[in-house]
Design a protein around this nucleic acid. Structure first.
Length: 844
RNA sequence: GCGAAAGUGGCGGAAUUGGCAGACGCGCUGGACUUAGGAUCCAGUGGCCCAAAGCCGUGUGGGUUCGAGUCCCACCUUUCGCACCA
């Protein structure tokens, strides 16, 4: 009987579905476990690279089910977003239709992979039943002052015709389309995530089971820094300007001040300058530049013509404007200490400003200003304050503490903690998203829609022209509304929400997805959450995960949640890469057009460049799962995907490598057929029993640690052991050991194991059988092979009974002729025995 | 520039607390079975050497140790993240 995956896989997929094996009653008691894969954007077809994420989650889910856990494994759709709208513009298909079609395709693909989700919990964020709670959440945040409309310089993507959150701008470009982002001063909706900066930072310390990398990225993004705000008096204006510094200990070395060109005091400062016009032209030029352009143009500045008083040295120091000082951070003004800050140093050198050393190395001589060609920062106690009056001789950390005390005492400033994090801009001038439930009324001003009027339904009858502007704004019956307060005519907000709002709380909705009365059932949610195991890509290290942590805290503060961290364990799978081919113009070439000549790629006689990159449609290097499944089956794809590399690592797809997984399953199959055909009789050979227990032990430990590649290699070894026993005519004795193999293999290759399990005459699913437990006593070998080293070099082996005493082992070692050759006639200096492993004899 | 992680056969990768480097798989070589093989099965496969014995071998150079892929120091390379955040 041949192994034909295509014959058996659809059958088992159907049986699991019919038996509703993955549906769970969340109100029933049980040892709960909440598994979650990040819900995907329904972009259409999935490739084997996407598959890694879901296959991995399904393997873990099935393992926990076999461990007897009440495991919830829901799935849904992050269904709002720009690609749907772009598809509408390009192809004339409605975003909703496009989205729902993609959802259906992806759902079918999950089924073909044999993935078990609890579809009774499915949600799609584009449905009013879901997004009304998005709107409800917004209103709660608005009530608490955490949602506000404000004017600020924002990121505008000219390609996508919308504003973007800071988190969505990568190296000055739109994260989605890659267009250069422009700065615009606009009135927009924000969520006050900055109110939670400190808690979001501190909470990272409690996340023991998150990858360090992700925590670090979040920590850097939040950018907490301690320092001081200090007032510098400007005599000619009879007022002071406040600067922020993280290094108040260097204030004696502050020899000038620099303000951002956008600083509100600039006009006043330059009012008396003879160069005023030139300075204004320069400011206008800088204002037009993005941060990226400013950085590329190098450090530039202008002298305002005025001076401030350094409050510690009492010297007059010049006030400059500089393109490198950011208005968005701190106070938009800095004190410059060129000796101990690299940026200040460069600026001072460029404009001939004085440099004064106020920190010396803790061990070593004072720095020579004239010999310096870079700043020396001394951020820790490797530096000691000098020429700094009251803090002279103090190491940097203590100097900072002391000087802040003095600053506060003198009333010229205070110690302060600042964050790099800025408020979350959630307005989008796009159609396919959750309408922001607000009204503009002439008499009443800004009015929130009443909760009982939710949802504010997104109208479906809008034209998609692709021309500038949000189609919603042109929809008369949507825009014209009645004021919730005065009943008069009002204009509806036509901005929609960033889709990251939708995904910031969806994991709460999965518990009671059909509840029409409330966003979620607090009692059940507090029982099921936090999510025990969250799985998804590293690309969400900041965006989604930070927003979800923020929203969870706001709901906690509303008294709805008892926890502040939504995800206990986080796992980021690595991407799958494959070779793609580029032509001489740098365009990607379809694999069908590529011919290999002497191992090098060509299109006709044009040589191509092979490049291993992340699998993606645009690079034309995707492997569609359906062809693979048709040829080898989903089980093969699953086993190969998990075996290819450690799951957190990037992995290169190899079409040949797939065959190895297929052969392995083929061997398991043929072995199963033979064992099923032999009437069970007698005990399995001792080596098989031992290997079985060792394998149970190894696979269990490795699945728990997400080491699927080595879990599978252990199963291959066990399968090889069983195969030898079958060839040795022992098939009749192997049934229990073989059944254990099927159970251990089930999470990785669910279909074939169900089929063989049934073939052996078992009732029920492998999935609902009990995960085997290893008997440690039976794992032990009767005899052990001890490696023998002489002076650290391997010289032989001896076999001794397991647990033999040290003396007996040495006796066996010196009885060995091979070893005698190396030690005869030499002084034995030392004998070392590592129990059960090796002996090292040191001779001279 | 700053921060983090990682360097092991032709390839993907194994290797508890320092204890037989290269598990498992791909590929390759030889063989079996075949009209055929890009199917299947069997054997071999780190390098030097016909082979054995032996020697060498985990990015480079040092060190600690009876013993180092693993620990320490210096360096090199790669990848990722941040990037004028005062």
């Amino acid at each position: 009987m041949q192994y034909r995956p295509t014959d058996i896989e659809p059958k088992w997929q159907q049986r699991w579905a019919e038996a509703r094996v993955s549906e769970i009653d969340v109100s029933a008691p049980g040892d709960k476990l909440y598994m979650l894969n990040m819900f995907p954007y329904p972009s259409g077809d999935l490739h084997v690279g996407h598959g890694r994420n879901y296959i991995l989650g399904d393997a873990v889910y099935r393992y926990f089910r076999m461990q007897g856990r009440a495991a919830l494994n829901p799935m849904g759709w992050d269904a709002f977003g720009l690609p749907a709208e772009n598809a509408a513009i390009k192809r004339g298909i409605h975003p909703r239709e496009w989205t729902l079609g993609n959802i259906a395709r992806m759902k079918a693909q999950f089924a073909r992979w044999g993935i078990l989700y609890d579809w009774s919990k499915e949600v799609a964020s584009c449905e009013p039943e879901y997004y009304r709670w998005n709107q409800w959440l917004f209103l709660q945040l608005y009530k608490r002052g955490l949602a506000y409309r404000g004017t600020a310089p924002v990121n505008w993507c000219p390609q996508d015709q919308t504003v973007l959150a800071n988190e969505q701008v990568v190296e000055g470009r739109c994260e989605r389309c890659g267009a250069l982002v422009e700065q615009r001063e606009l009135s927009q909706w924000f969520l006050k995530i900055t109110d939670y900066a400190d808690r979001l930072d501190a909470g990272l310390d409690t996340l023991e089971h998150w990858p360090e990398k992700v925590k670090l990225m979040q920590r850097n993004w939040i950018g907490k820094s301690r320092g001081a705000d200090v007032e510098f008096f400007v005599p000619s204006l009879n007022r002071s300007i406040r600067v922020f510094t993280t290094r108040p200990d260097t204030i004696f070395g502050a020899t000038f001040m620099v303000l951002a060109p956008e600083h509100p005091a600039v006009q006043e400062l330059i009012s008396g300058s003879p160069d005023r016009e030139e300075i204004e032209t320069w400011i206008a030029g800088v204002r037009n530049q993005s941060n990226l352009e400013r950085q590329e143009s190098g450090k530039e500045g202008r002298f305002t013509g005025r001076t401030a008083i350094n409050p510690f040295t009492n010297e007059e120091i010049p006030i400059w404007l500089g393109n490198f000082v950011l208005m968005q951070y701190g106070t938009g003004a800095i004190m410059s200490v060129p000796a101990h800050d690299e940026r200040d140093f460069q600026f001072a050198k460029q404009y001939g400003l004085p440099i004064r050393v106020v920190i010396k190395p803790a061990s070593g001589d004072e720095l020579d200003v004239n010999a310096m060609n870079e700043a020396f920062t001394f951020k820790d106690d490797t530096g000691v304050a000098v020429h700094s009056g009251p803090i002279d001789g103090l190491p940097v950390p203590r100097a900072i503490e002391t000087i802040i005390g003095i600053i506060e005492e003198r009333g010229i400033g205070k110690g302060i903690v600042r964050y790099r994090l800025r408020d979350w801009l959630i307005s989008r001038q796009r159609y396919w998203g959750t309408p922001i439930p607000m009204l503009y009324c002439d008499p009443c001003g800004l009015v929130p829609v009443r909760e009982e009027e939710l949802p504010v339904t997104l109208p479906l009858d809008v034209p998609f022209t692709g021309r500038e502007g949000n189609p919603l704004a042109k929809h008369d019956t949507f825009v014209h509304a009645t004021c919730s307060q005065c009943g008069g005519p009002a204009r509806r907000e036509t901005d929609t929400m960033d889709t990251f709002v939708d995904s910031s709380w969806y994991f709460l909705r999965f518990i009671t997805p059909r509840d029409e009365q409330k966003i979620f059932d607090a009692e059940l949610v507090n029982r099921w959450l936090p999510v025990d195991q969250y799985i998804g890509g590293i690309e969400h290290a900041i965006l989604h995960l930070l927003y979800a942590r923020f929203i969870t805290r706001t709901l906690h503060d509303m008294g709805l949640l008892q926890f502040e961290e939504p995800f206990t364990r986080l796992f980021n799978q690595g991407v799958i890469t494959k070779e793609g081919y580029k032509d001489t113009h740098g365009s990607w070439v379809a694999p069908a057009e590529v011919q290999m000549v002497d191992g090098k790629p060509y299109r006709g006689d044009e040589p191509l460049l092979a490049e291993v990159t992340k699998m993606s449609k645009s690079r034309m290097n995707v492997v569609p799962p359906d062809e693979l499944i048709a040829k080898y089956g989903a089980d093969t794809e699953r086993v190969y995907t998990l075996f290819i590399a450690p799951p957190e690592k990037e992995a290169a797809w190899s079409d040949e490598g797939v065959v190895g997984a297929y052969r392995f399953l083929g061997r398991v199959w043929h072995m199963g057929v033979q064992i099923a055909g032999a009437a069970a009789a007698g005990d399995a050979p001792a080596n098989v029993v031992r290997k079985m227990h060792q394998t149970i032990d190894a696979v269990t430990a490795r699945v728990e640690k997400f080491e699927f590649n080595t879990a599978i290699s252990a199963l291959m070894e066990f399968s090889n052991t069983l195969g030898e026993a079958v060839s040795g005519g022992q098939a009749a004795t192997l049934r229990p050991a073989y059944e254990a193999l099927l159970q251990l293999l089930h999470p990785f290759a669910p279909h074939i194991t169900e089929e063989l399990w049934t073939m052996l005459g078992n009732e029920g699913f492998v999935l609902t059988s009990k995960w085997p437990v290893a008997d440690r006593a039976l794992m032990q070998e009767d005899t052990v092979v001890i490696a023998v080293q002489v002076n650290g070099k391997l010289r032989g082996q001896v076999e001794v009974p397991a647990g033999a005493a040290e003396a007996a082992v040495f006796e066996a070692v010196f009885a060995s002729e091979r070893i005698q050759q190396w030690v005869a006639g030499k002084d034995i200096v030392k004998k070392i025995y590592v129990p059960g492993k090796l002996v090292n004899v040191v001779v001279k």
